[in-house]
């Protein structure tokens, strides 16, 4: 008996070894990700933090060498462009995501829409730029900040729509059913009960999408481009913005001063996103223990 027992036993050693190897691999993956992030953060801080000051934040851009040189016009331009993109893209995408989640399950049209949105999500951002260039810049004869917003909205749209749908589908069916069972309409149940129980995740998802598009450069090269002026002619003229500024100042200029300002702008974008993420986490904490 003892011999057959020994026969069917497998040594524990190899299973433990495999476990250790898997643990090491995933730990190494995590370490790599954290290392990359810290490295990027460090270079941005080292090169960019130094130029931040009142002039830098509140003065408009000027040719190198002039006093009171800043990126204030680009900051404001980016705010205009991004906010308008959010206003155009997010409500429509949210509504689409809700609709897809309620009416688009197991339906042919729903699947078609989902497929299109997935394709749209995979499109290189430069295509959004060229598209709006053909649609708005060529036809009106001028680049504008608004054209930039439109191209960013196109990038934003599919991401927000899929995020919304995915988040809604994560809510257990029982929550939706129990609100319907109380006599609510489907729309009320989804908007007031289902979306309320995922508001933190939804807000985070939408903010991440906004943050990613706020840094998109390629579409803005075709649309908003760049200007040393303040963005008061947002609808009709090229408009200053941070991504194009970083591109121009760091790679297209011989001046050391402008290189430093490019890093400063990169620092600004990074810190803003970081703060926005932290703020959102703070606001949307799950208040389970109220």
């Amino acid at each position: 008996m003892r011999e057959t027992d020994d026969c069917i036993r497998r040594p524990v050693f190899f299973r433990k070894l495999l476990n250790a190897v898997m643990w090491l691999l995933s730990a190494a993956g995590v370490a790599l990700a954290v290392f990359c992030m810290l490295w990027i953060l460090w270079s941005v801080i080292r090169n960019g933090a130094g130029v931040i000051g009142l002039d830098f934040l509140f003065c408009g851009s000027k040719p190198p060498g002039e006093p009171d040189n800043g990126v204030g016009n680009a900051i404001l331009g980016t705010v205009f462009i991004t906010l308008t993109a959010v206003v155009i893209g997010v409500p429509a995408a949210f509504a689409g995501g809700v609709g897809l989640a309620i009416y688009g399950q197991n339906s042919r049209i729903g699947n078609l829409i989902r497929f299109s949105v997935n394709v749209m999500m995979g499109l290189p951002s430069i295509l959004a730029g060229v598209f709006v260039y053909a649609l708005l810049v060529v036809t009106t004869g001028h680049r504008s900040g608004f054209a930039g917003s439109l191209s960013l909205a196109i990038i934003l749209f599919p991401v927000v729509m899929r995020t919304t749908e995915d988040m809604i589908l994560m809510v257990p069916a029982a929550v939706h059913e129990s609100s319907l069972a109380l006599g609510m309409t489907r729309a009320r149940s989804v908007l007031c009960i289902v979306c309320r129980s995922i508001k933190g995740g939804l807000a985070t998802g939408i903010l991440l999408a906004v943050a990613r598009t706020a840094g998109e450069t390629a579409p803005l090269l075709f649309t908003a481009l760049w200007s040393d002026a303040w963005p008061w002619h947002y609808f009709t003229q090229p408009t200053a913005n941070l991504p194009v500024l970083i591109n121009e100042y760091t790679t297209n200029s011989p001046s050391e001063e402008m290189h430093a300002m490019g890093w400063g702008a990169a620092f600004l974008i990074t810190i803003t996103l970081l703060l926005m993420n932290l703020a959102l986490r703070f606001i949307c904490r799950e208040k389970k223990h109220a």
Partner: peptide, 17 residues
């Protein structure tokens, strides 16, 4: 559904007070 109420297997309180 107002007249015929239903309670489910898993409790489903709404995310509110």
């Amino acid at each position: 559904r107002r007249k015929v109420g239903m309670i489910f297997q898993r409790p489903t309180p709404f995310p509110m007070s």
